[in-house]
Amino acid sequence: MEIAIQLVIAGILQGGLYALAAFGLSLIFGVSNVLNLAHGEFLMLGGLFCFLIFSATGLNPFLIGLMILPFAFFLGYIFDRFLMRPLAGKKEHIRLMSSILVTLGAALCIGDVTSFLAGAEEKGVDYSMPSFFWGDLYISYLRLLAMVMIAGLTVGIHYYLKKTYTGRALRATTQNIRGAMLVGVDTSRIRSVTFGIGSMLASIAGVFYVVLLSISPDMGLTVTIKYLCIIVLGGLGSLIGSLVGGVILGLTESIVSYYNPHWGQTAAFLILVLILLIRPKGLFGK
């Protein structure tokens, strides 16, 4: 029983982490209708800078994560401004094609330059917090903290999208771009801002990665693919969809891995494909 609870907790944490990064990608996909294959690179960069600053200063890694947020936003914003905006307004399948080329090129480029400058080896921040027993359950403060922060962030994003002008304009653009333009939303700017937000979420996820797991310069494409799968699973542009998709994947991985470590990932992809066969537009898609 303790093991079951332990596994569920680990799965939910993993899933929440997935959801955090996946939701950024989902927002971008919803607003600009492009596949951003470079999303994982933003995550990797977030983790890397956290690692570098931590190694130099020894500051609390989560504090560092907070400090690099503006830079992550800026990076995403200019990425959209210079690489994605020229593709807007093209026919749908041409835009899809160009976005694949541009973001794939960018992903290869960022990954390789990073591994050249910072070394190709895996990196992790050695930051630990005490653990405690709750009844028979072994609970790590660090993981608990991560879970609370992810939950907080999710609620925060939810309110940001519902209550602020930018958030509402962003949702309007997702639902109906022409309509949004007609009521005076600057959709080009909203796209860039969305890219900025997406990049911020990725970099926060990167910080969690580097603290709880590890990062390496060539991880980008692999994690991007996983997040793309999650948003397809959940249905695009849906916060709850990303969350549920992420948790389903995280739980599957953690439970199956316990019985056979090799089959965790396989089971996750199997479930993804099965769900898509039953619900082609994802669990929460319309």
Binding site: L83, P86, L87, M97, S98, S99, I100, L101, V102, L104, G105, A106, A107, L108, C109, I110, G111, D112, V113, F116
Partner: peptide, 16 residues
């Protein structure tokens, strides 16, 4: 070094 980066750059520029 950096041939993958240059390769990526070429793909990016053509796509753009």
């Amino acid at each position: 070094y950096l041939h993958t980066a240059a390769y990526g750059l070429v793909i990016l520029l053509v796509g753009l």
